[in-house]
Write a protein that binds this DNA or RNA. Structure first.
Length: 461
RNA sequence: GGCUCGGUGGCAGAGUGGUUAUGCAGCGGAUUGCAAAUCCGUCAACGCCGGUUCGAUUCCGACCCGAGCCUCCA
């Protein structure tokens, strides 16, 4: 079997992926803090690691993919306060919407979705160990991690404590022994959510949950830990510090981080008003179009997100589905996804642009294939598409149905078929002016006609 | 200021020490009543300056420009 190469943030190079236990491959990806809707930037790691999950599953018999739900955080508290509702209402609502939105991007459901609030026990255990090992201390109701207790702190993000101090631009709380120390546990006031602990009623700091949940659900060492680039520091650096100091041994074998996407060359930010939620985009584009767009750049490169990117993604998918519609009556041959050129491309650190190029190549061969070659090529296109989480819709449905939202459906299929029949009659009478008038009318309603020897097919633009 | 990563044809976006990425757009052709779709062909790129080399977009150095991180932002 060809080897899978992955870029490891820790070593800063591509490495051949060899799981610690080929019969139990483990991957943990940082999930959402559930206090608002996921935007398209949030969706990038979800789609990227979903694709990696698919590749891993095509190679290993047992893959355990965990993605957490962070349901306790100061931003959630704030969101609930300003909405005048309960925290649970906020987290339930946005957890459900997150699952729905990500499902629409055709992502497989993770094997485990641990919630932070269900794992307070493991967090308390983790802190006890850190305190016992002198890696943490208690100050003014807080439990803090002592960064200078770890010689190699900063190794993942490639920065030294001195570097960090040189650039410090944040006020340091007086109870910290070292300015780089971070909070493991903080006290809660009566109107804030909290749990009893040996250090008083409080709640976890940002990084604690992931270390505790990885330990509780996946074990001491995991194969892959993923997330957005911005998480390298401080989040993953601190997770690593917590886990390594509490449990010793190797924590994560391969660290993977995706780059940002930018909106038409600008950073997506609330102040620029260019934040686009997945939910909003799904009003105008099907989830598979968003997924294709997100995969059209390599995950470690910045992706320029724009309307034209989405339009291109839609055209590409339309052409694949058109190729499949042409051969709808031919049964595909069973093709092993791992034997396709698309799989080869993905094995090289998830080179999705190359994989998409290979998809185009297969589609092109299918378009001009002789009868005997069709089953094999169709099978290849479908199997390769599945590895990318694409092309699994019925081609006719894809090309003729409107958006899933149901809005702007326009003409019904029956009406369109009726017009096509009328046009065929006009053409038979050599009344091309009438035939073209029908075609133009349909075109302005967003319906494209395609004539062939076998008859006329249509699709929505 | 510190650390990190980039600058590829009109646009998006891979890759490589010497030979076409790919897609969209453009141009020419086949096909079509005309189109659309499809197919064939075609144009066009590697920030700037040096260095290494028989040869550099690819390696090295300087410079210019851009992006990200530097305590809760994917």
């Amino acid at each position: 079997m060809a080897e899978l190469a992955l870029y490891n943030t820790f070593s800063r190079k591509k490495e051949i992926f060899t799981p610690a236990d080929p019969n139990r491959v483990t991957m943990y990806v940082c999930g959402p803090t559930v206090y608002n809707l996921a935007h398209i930037g949030n969706a990038r790691p979800v789609v990227v690691f979903d694709t990696l999950n698919r590749v891993l599953r095509s190679r290993y018999p047992n893959v355990i993919y965990a993605r957490n739900i962070t349901d306790i955080d100061d931003k959630i508290i704030e969101a609930a306060r300003s909405a005048g509702t309960d925290i649970k209402d906020v987290t339930d609502e946005f957890t459900a919407k997150y699952r729905e939105d990500m499902g629409n991007l055709n992502t497989l459901i993770p094997d485990i979705e641990p919630h932070a609030t269900d794992n307070i026990g493991p967090m308390l255990d983790l802190m006890e160990r850190l305190l016992a090992g002198d890696h943490a201390y208690v100050a003014e109701g807080h439990v803090l991690f002592a960064v200078d207790s770890m010689a190699e702190y900063g190794q993942l993000s490639g920065r030294s404590l001195d570097d960090m101090l040189a650039g410090a631009r944040v006020e340091v709380a007086s109870y910290k022994r070292h300015p780089g120390d971070f909070v493991l546990w903080k006290p809660s006031s009566d109107d804030e959510p909290g749990w009893e602990s040996p250090w008083g009623r409080g709640r976890p700091g940002w990084h604690l949950e992931c270390s505790a949940m990885i330990k509780a659900h996946l074990g001491d060492t995991i194969d892959i830990h993923g997330g957005g680039r911005d998480l390298i520091f401080p989040h993953h650096e601190n997770e690593r510090a917590q886990s390594c100091c509490a449990y010793g041994g190797e924590f994560v074998r391969y660290w993977m981080h995706n780059a940002y996407l930018d909106m038409d060359g600008e950073k997506m930010s609330k102040s620029l008003g260019n934040v686009r939620t997945v939910r909003e985009l799904l009003q105008s584009y099907r989830g598979e179009v968003l997924r294709f767009a997100l995969l059209s750049a390599h995950y470690r490169s910045e992706l320029t997100f724009s309307e034209s990117l989405l339009d291109n993604a839609k055209s590409a998918l339309d052409s694949f589905y058109s190729a499949l519609r042409q051969v709808a009556d031919t049964a595909p041959e069973a093709v092993e996804a791992s034997e396709t050129a698309v799989a080869q491309a993905l094995l090289d650190d998830l080179n999705t642009p190359q994989a998409i190029a290979e998809l185009h190549a297969v589609s092109k061969r299918l378009n001009k294939a002789e009868e005997a070659a069709i089953p094999r090529l169709k099978g290849e296109l479908l199997a390769a598409g599945k590895l990318l989480g694409l092309l699994q819709h019925d081609p006719v449905d894809w090309l003729t149905s409107g958006l899933s939202s149901g809005s702007g459906e326009g003409l019904s299929a029956d009406e369109i078929e009726g017009q096509i029949a009328a046009r065929a009659a006009a053409k038979a009478d050599k009344d091309f002016a009438a035939a073209d008038a029908i075609r133009d009318a349909l075109a302005s309603a967003g319906i494209v006609l395609e004539d062939s020897a076998a008859g006329t097919t249509w699709r929505r633009q």
